[in-house]
Amino acid sequence: MTKPLTTDELAAVTEQQAAAAKTIFGFWVYLMTDCVLFATLFATFAVLRNNTFGGPAGNELFSLPFVLIETLVLLTSSFTVGLGVLAARRRDRNQVLLFFGITMLLGIFFLTMELTEFHKLYVEGNSWRRSGFLSAFFTLVGTHGLHIASGLLWMAIMMLRTARHGLTDLSIKRLTMLSMFWHFLDIIWIFIFTVVYLMAGVV
């Protein structure tokens, strides 16, 4: 058992937590503005989705089982990142490395699948130059992929720091924000999955 904190120590801890909570709130505000960025891309896609310029439409290009696997992989990574943050709050370094490691592998798998799809479209002559629909598709899905890539970079840095220096208050705060970022990207993907892939060719 640790000995109870003195009033001064308790005040310092409370102040530190308050500062951390403010930083996390600030990060939440950033996520909401990022949401607005994605809204503009979704609006562009929704306007241009039928402008295929004589080229192929979404339902002729996309493989739904492939995208379902992508979706389930990202969803699982959103679950494991949550378990990683719980481990960080317990100050269990090995579990943090384990869960963030699994999340990272799933993230890399997701990104590889997405790039495979992009590559396939590109070599078949259905790149962003083909039509307004494909320009909007590559911009929306590509921006999400770029976010995933930066999330993976952030995750790699955090895991390296955790492995070297252990878990500090600062790293727990940063891991919390990283997990919020990752959950946010999963939520954006639900809408990409629904609007871009499932609704392709419906109306």
Binding site: T14, E15, Q17, A18, A20, A21, K22, I24
Partner: peptide
């Protein structure tokens, strides 16, 4: 700060 901390916890 009290509200923030309880919210955080």
């Amino acid at each position: 700060s009290k509200a923030i901390v309880s919210q955080h916890e």
